[in-house]
């Protein structure tokens, strides 16, 4: 499944059903550039999870709303509700565990 780029406008609508994984990232952050291909591979492997990305540089309101203070940060939403948050690089297995 393809990865969806989220903005303050489409965020709530995008995560309101099922399980969603959101990757908060920015171009200036080295570790985020390593997180990105892993998140992409996760999306390929797990079509049942809606996989999204938020560029915190372009979406400061979302970064503030979810209190993103370090990136990469990954969050899992179930039916629109934030249920998990991890800060720092996560490997494939850790992401799978988060979304289980």
């Amino acid at each position: 499944m393809s990865v969806i780029e989220l903005t303050a406008e489409n965020f709530d609508e995008a995560v309101k059903d099922g399980t969603s994984l959101v990757d908060f990232w920015a171009a200036w952050c080295g570790p985020c550039r390593m997180q990105s291909p892993i998140v992409d591979a996760f999306a390929e492997k797990h079509p049942e999870v809606k996989v999204c990305k938020v560029n915190v540089d372009e979406q400061p309101a979302l970064a503030m709303r979810f209190e993103i203070m370090s990136i990469p940060t990954l969050m899992v939403f179930r039916s629109g509700e934030a249920v998990k948050k991890t800060v720092g690089l996560s490997g494939m297995e850790e992401i799978e565990e988060m979304c289980r």
């Binding site: 200036w28 080295g30 570790p31 203070m69 370090s70």
Partner: peptide, 16 residues
């Protein structure tokens, strides 16, 4: 408080 205001990487998190 790591990730809750504590950061190890100025270039990663400075912009926030």
């Amino acid at each position: 408080l790591l990730g809750k205001g504590v950061s190890w990487c100025a270039t990663c998190d400075g912009m926030l």
